[in-house]
Design a binder for these strands. Structure first.
Lengths: 224, 224
DNA sequence: TTGGTCCTGTCAAAGACCTAACAAGAACGC
DNA sequence: GCGTTCTTGTTAGGTCTTTGACAGGACCAA
């Protein structure tokens, strides 16, 4: 993933850095709401449990956000990061599949706060169609393609059963979605211009298990 | 994170490898259910969109699971990985915080299939207490510590409001939980022998946005 | 003005990770 | 038996990522 920074240079931004940008933004918004005006790389880094030099290095890909001697100004940094991440303008979002997980995500208010307003929920089940979640009605899946086109939906959350995941994803792509957040435990295929992010919840749980199994053991092994 | 492999050698297993182990297991269980008996590193790797050499390298940390010339036998590989990951015996789990996300996760059947049976749900809200999700009743939070101790609960899912996250986590740790799966958008502090895994949902969404914003642009920039 | 302290941007070295390559074993057909 | 074609385990080399170090700007107090 490449970008041009503010000084006209071209950089390849490492995936590892991209993964951290949202963490920076999230923390900075919290600081902003708390009324904090300035923050140094060390303060921000330690609060995120990373090294300050890494944070500065990450910012360096984009040309830096301050100058030597002056800490970062929160009110400048927040919009700059928002623009880089792509949430400077709201990114309208839909949820496809109104099962329990879909409903749970629909209720998660944090997305709205970070620039991803929920504009629609879709399902095939007639029992669910017509229900409302936080003011957003559940519509029949058949209406999804037209709705995406008419409302300029860019991101779709995929929480349907595994068996129909690829089929529904195809419909979303055809309708014009550019990003799919895939919660189904299967891979889906899309054209290269559509970004897919797989959120494998069970993976996180198993990593936890792997490490939890080894606490105590780890101490002995570290000694040599 | 260090382990001793089957040949008596000690290795430091990279985090990146640990992250992939659950992916391997997940895919292998699918193959097993489909009746597949043997699978080569190339087949398994391409289905996961990684290089075969990487997969063999990962397995190498644990001494390897076959011998030169013979592909992996699914029925041997699955239990071996389960043992390594720590899901060879079921890991009983509770969910603390029965809000929408907590309920959504409680309804997610996949966890049970992968060795994490849900044994309890807890909340402070009297309106929620007494409800059942898939046969598991929601209990008052005050009963949580005793329940954890009596039932040998090892892993707790934290889906409470941000403000009380640290406090509830402390209670879980005191009760004997060894792993916390943190869905709150805040860091929690625990003693070193308790593993915390933060699941920042909004981070995934923002990474998606970062990449989706740059499709098209990326093509031009790749050319030099 | 001067010295001290805090800060960032920048780069080089170190470290972690991934990949290609290859030796050697197994199965099959001839 | 022999060659062909599959396979894995193993390692060396290359690539990506993190870290430490430092030059130089900003601010403050004396």
């Amino acid at each position: 993933m490449r970008v041009v920074n503010t000084k006209g240079k071209k950089f390849r931004v490492p995936d590892a850095t991209i993964l951290r940008l949202p963490l920076y933004l999230d923390k900075l918004i919290l600081l902003q709401q708390a009324g904090v005006k300035e923050v140094s790389s060390r303060q921000l880094a330690t609060s995120l449990d990373i090294k300050a030099s890494q944070l500065r290095h990450d910012f360096h890909y984009f040309g830096g956000f301050s100058k030597p001697g002056r800490p970062y100004q929160v009110d400048k940094l927040v919009p700059a990061l928002e623009e880089i991440i792509g949430v400077d303008v709201p990114v309208p979002m839909i949820i496809v599949g109104a099962g329990h997980l879909g409903q749970g995500l629909a209720n998660y208010r944090n997305f709205e706060r970070l620039g991803f307003p929920l504009r629609g929920i879709f399902d095939v089940d007639p029992k669910l169609v017509g229900l409302e979640i936080r003011g957003v009605p559940i519509r029949p899946l058949s209406e999804m393609p037209a709705y995406v086109q008419e409302n300029g939906i860019r991101v779709g959350v995929l929480t349907v059963p595994v068996g129909v995941a690829q089929d529904v994803a195809n419909q979303m792509v055809a309708a014009g979605v550019v990003g799919i957040w895939n919660f189904t435990p299967t891979d889906i295929r899309t054209p290269p211009q559509v970004i897919v992010r797989n959120e494998r919840l069970a993976v996180g749980l198993m990593c936890l298990s792997f490490k939890a199994k080894r606490v105590g053991q780890a101490e002995e092994l570290k000694q040599d």
